[in-house]
Amino acid sequence: MTLSAVPASLRLPPWRALLLRPAGLTGTIIVAIVTVAALAAPLIATHDPIAVDLSRKLLPPGATHWLGTDQTGRDIFSRIVWGARPSLAVGLLAVLIGAAGGIMFGLTAAFARGWWEQVAMRIMDGLASIPLLIWAIAITGIVGIGPVRIGMWTFPNESKLILLIGLLYMPPLARVTYGSALLEVRADYVQARRLQGAGASAIMLGDVLPNCLSPVIVQATLLIAVGIVVEASLSFIGLGVEPPFPSWGGMLADARRYIFSGEWWTYIFPGLAISLTVIGFNLLGDGLRDILDPRKVSGSGRMVV
């Protein structure tokens, strides 16, 4: 990169710069489609996703059943549309928990320094040394498969996943917050705000946090993709979303025996739904990184799972 040319991304508002890049545009479109599908599932789905009709089982894609039917005659298109809900719920809620905790630890560690910095970052190191997938399996295994009842509320089985993934998302998000907050805390404007008499929490949340958010947003977008893959994988082995409720991973678990008998629509479409959704969030995350954090090579610096 030459120094004389100011990158286009610095002159445009970020969302314009994002949509001008093919990767960013593709990612945004895919994420928008999946979000609309999840929110408006009852309006978009053409059939009841759990209505069994054995007389219509394993129909190939056609006019009434756009993507065919599964082994109990359920409409695959409708199940894919409804299946967007648990996928996005796990992906988004886990990242929200992780971001809330990660920002809290990262920001206060950079701000307070001293013993709290040590304690907070050592807690994050400890959490980072726990392998996500094994523990997602272990938690459901130990607590047991089934809904969680707390008082008058009943939470679905995948809420255990959301809590665990959210907890393990804290370290990467805390580290990026901490890294950029350390630089910001030394900046002149923070000193100026102190002299104005602003309180520590006002400076932290009102001034420093907005300046640290770019890398957090990039990382969070990429982590949504990870959460969706983990949810689908656990639903596939029967530890995630419980049947008969539709989930992409669960649909593939039902469909695996049809690989041998040729009903390709049962295992192609749910897999495409997962892969395209995850590609969408990854492209969006990489696109955001190119704009907000242009020094990084796109695709590097991911949380590995």
Binding site: L252, A255, R256, I259, G271, S275, N282, G299
Partner: peptide, 26 residues
């Protein structure tokens, strides 16, 4: 390499496995 990397982090291992069975075994 960039396309391979995006596909690699996006295609879930278990679906890739199912597709490989459909292609390489069946």
């Amino acid at each position: 390499a960039r396309v391979v990397a995006t596909l690699g982090v996006s295609i879930p291992t278990f679906w890739l496995g199912l597709m490989l069975i459909a292609w390489g075994a069946v």
